[in-house]
Computed example of a mutant assay.
Amino acid sequence: MIPDHVEVAIIEVGRRLDRQGLVPATAGNFSIRLDARTLAVTVSGRHKGFLRPGDVMVVDIDGRPLTAGKRSSAETLLHCGIYRRFPEAGAVLHGHSIANTVMSRAAEGESITLAGYELLKAFPGLPTHEAEIAVPVVENDQDIPRMQQGLDLLWDGMAEPPPGYLIRGHGSYVWAADMPGALARLEALEFMLACEMQERRMR
């Protein structure tokens, strides 16, 4: 059973991100942690701007469906990987935008550095714009468990893993303690990536 407020939060975030062009067609997926072993996640194949009650299902922390007759995206396993790794994570958002697609494809290294932006304050530990963050860019892979293994290795090597990453040519993932926090981080990340893309055009 999914609490009404959880389903409403997921439906509302889908509408907001659709208005901003961050989840075109059936792209993206969202989740909220229900408890230590389960999460509510969007079902596969739905346009996120037109989600309705019933377009959210429950899976366990390993991605196994607990709602009969419904299927979530294979990328649900990436949500599960975040929840397993970061106990403080309460919500995960995955979006697709022009900016994150273009910038992740153009990135020559394994990260994109964002520096000097006011919206860096949306990320933990960055109280002012006088900071920078390296957002990891990982290779796209249709083998989702293998991708998650790579992410776990990446996080193992980081002193402070940022609550977000990009999949090259594919999309962005962010997480936070709750849905409002995750939404703020996704919007901040997407804004900064759009600024970076615009600056490249002006050079």
Rank of each mutant, 00 (worst) to 15 (best):
D141W: 09
V56S: 10
V58Q: 09
N29Q: 09
K121E: 12
E75Q: 12
I133K: 06
R33W: 09
P24C: 05
Y83P: 00
H5I: 05
E108K: 14
H170A: 01
V137P: 00
V92M: 08
G164A: 06
I11W: 05
A99W: 07
M57S: 02
L153P: 07
S97C: 04
P24I: 04
L193R: 03
R85K: 10
A134G: 06
D143N: 15
V23G: 06
G54M: 02
G21R: 02
T76S: 15
A182G: 10
G14R: 01
R46Q: 08
R64G: 10
G14A: 04
E160Y: 10
I167F: 06
G90W: 06
L66S: 09
V58W: 07
Q148L: 14
E199N: 15
A107G: 06
E75F: 11
R185D: 03
G125E: 01
R46C: 04
E7Y: 11
G95K: 00
D178Y: 09
D55G: 00
L114A: 03
V8P: 03
M202G: 14
G125S: 02
C80E: 06
P161F: 00
S72Y: 10
V135T: 08
L186H: 13
G21A: 02
A36T: 15
V137Y: 01
D35T: 05
A9R: 12
V102I: 15
D35W: 04
S73K: 04
G181E: 08
G90A: 04
I144N: 03
E110P: 10
Y83T: 02
A89I: 05
Q20Y: 14
V135C: 09
E132V: 07
V58C: 10
L39S: 06
L66F: 08
L154F: 00
A27I: 07
G157P: 02
Q20G: 14
E12D: 15
V137S: 00
I11L: 09
R71F: 08
V56C: 14
D35R: 06
W155G: 00
A74P: 04
S111A: 15
G45R: 05
V102L: 13
P161L: 03
H170T: 04
L189S: 01
G125A: 02
V92L: 07
Q198V: 13
L77V: 09
S172G: 04
I61N: 02
K121Q: 13
K48P: 09
T101R: 14
L119N: 12
R146M: 12
P180D: 00
G169Q: 12
P87N: 08
H129V: 06
E7C: 12
Y117Q: 11
R71N: 11
L189D: 01
R84D: 01
V8F: 12
T26L: 09
T38W: 08
R37M: 12
